[in-house]
Amino acid sequence: MSSSSTIVTAGLTKHYGDVKAVVDLDLAIDAGEVFGFLGPNGSGKTTTIRTMLDLIRPTAGTASILGLDSHRDAVEIRQHIGYVPGELALYRNLTGKELITYFANLRGGVDWTRVNLLAERLDAVLDKKVGELSTGNRQKVALVQAFMSKPSVLVLDEPSIGLDPLVQQQFQAIIREAAEEGATVFLSSHTLSEVERVASRVGIIRTGRLIVVETMEALKEKAVRTVTMQFDQPVGEAEFAAVAGVRDASVDGTQATVAVEGSMAQLLQLASSLGVVEMSSNESDLEEIFLTYYREDAAQ
């Protein structure tokens, strides 16, 4: 967190009557960072985003983007923002091209070479009326309009809904390129694998409260891997259970299966000393971590 962060919220709070949609949210996201914003349905993700964009006003606290106040300097902020709303609705009577021209005119022009390039990469249909497009194809039009002005801040609320896996891949590449060029990406998503692939840091929000902000590396360190080992002789369960980071161990004769969190160095040492002949490990399961955070907090 630094004072020159691109997106900063301080004590951001939004109540709807008695319902506390967002409570005391403190965030700081730096330039060039892809920030994954996660949380269950109704946790306050979209409310946070809509407050940052001045579509709704905070009950307390502030949000600033590029050092500008989200309410006072809303119009100036929007010069620099590309946005994909969570509940996407486009003007159905316009073609994709007309829609993009319209938004481009509101922004004072557009680089059509870039639009065409984006449309090509995402396989977006721009010559049909938006109302005639499928959900996925509408989403592509929304993505083109969000990225077309090379914005320095991208606010993406569930941006990959309806996209096929190939287009998802392209979209993730576009996000990474934007970040490499210095853009800040605020990515709210339920597609955990997507967040895992593109985000450098994630925040998890639940019932309006931010419960954790971690870098992806730190989360991966916490991730639990399941390791299965085959030995040349029977081994004891207690030896594995005693290793630092091992959460769970079970032994069946010459085969041991352990769940380990963080570094595997000690486990490998032990396995080697016991005469391991074969070893397999699954990928660290970030999804499980995310879900644990969801559940842990739910239980509180």
Partner: peptide
């Protein structure tokens, strides 16, 4: 009603 206002107001227009 049509939820188009969000995207419209994400543009630099007061």
């Amino acid at each position: 009603d049509n939820s188009t206002m969000d995207l419209l107001l994400a543009n630099p227009i007061t």
